[in-house]
């Protein structure tokens, strides 16, 4: 990949990752979103799906890069794709808090417009017990939140400055948690669908393949022949 092409490719990846938001805006403006039978449910699943898909795409970067030294440039996309996964996971969480929970957006908004600045907070207090109950009792909420918290930690520590401050080893150790986030996200999906629904299967297969690729790579590094990259490194 010629270095000159990288910025263009980055722009393309940005466009691809932000496109689901543009599509959502389009659905909203055309009225198609409100005409959905259950817009809140649609938004929840839409953002959850994109968070998981982009996270899987992010997890695929390293195994694909290892296929050939020629693909080394792929690493330069890992951070931005990971940040998009965090972005959609955050949207998903916000939709849970402000729409799915039963939060009364129209009343909060009307209150704000009438100058009652505390109205949004008051509305949040009304649904807080329900959310707390979810958090205490429900596996799929706990595991989903765990996944988001991991993504949050990774997003916060993703800038180069933080990497340098943390030291490469620590940073890498922390960022291996991305696999835990992926597993938690898939588990979160399985736990919330009703018995008999196999919608999370495809995502789970992809995740499993990516995890296996990683395990195979570690095993190869440990017991297999040194890879060309390692040999080069040793020679140098």
């Amino acid at each position: 990949m010629p270095p000159r092409a990288i910025p263009y490719l980055k722009a393309a990846v940005h466009l691809f990752c932000i496109n689901p938001v543009f599509y959502l805006v389009h659905l909203y403006r055309s009225g198609m979103l409100a005409n959905q039978a259950d817009p809140v449910n649609f938004l929840t699943h839409y953002t959850g799906d994109w968070a998981l898909w982009i996270l899987l795409a992010d997890l695929a970067i390293t195994p694909v890069r290892r296929l050939s030294p020629k693909l080394a440039w792929l690493i330069r996309f890992r951070r931005m794709v990971g940040e998009y996964a965090f972005f959609y996971a955050t949207l998903h969480l916000l939709i849970y808090i402000f729409l799915f929970s039963g939060y009364d957006v129209p009343t909060a908004w009307a209150g704000l417009r009438a100058g009652h600045l505390m109205e949004p907070l008051h509305q949040l207090r009304l649904v807080w017990p329900t959310m707390l109950d979810d958090l205490k009792k429900r596996w799929f909420i706990q595991i989903g939140l765990l996944s988001w918290l991991i993504l949050l930690a990774l997003a916060v520590t993703s800038p180069q400055r933080v990497l340098r401050a943390m030291g490469g080893k620590n940073w890498q150790r922390l960022h291996r948690l991305v696999y835990v986030a992926g597993i938690a996200a898939c588990l979160h999906y399985w736990l919330l669908v009703k018995a008999g629904v196999r919608a999370p299967l495809k995502d789970t297969v992809v995740l499993s393949v990516l995890l296996l690729a990683r395990i195979a790579w570690s095993a190869w590094k440990k017991w297999g022949r040194p890879t060309p990259a390692v040999r080069v490194a040793r020679a140098a």
Partner: peptide, 13 residues
């Protein structure tokens, strides 16, 4: 979530 409105984004809970 009461799904009764023809065109509202915000379902009543």
């Amino acid at each position: 979530r009461r799904l009764d409105s023809a065109s509202s984004l915000f379902a009543k809970t």
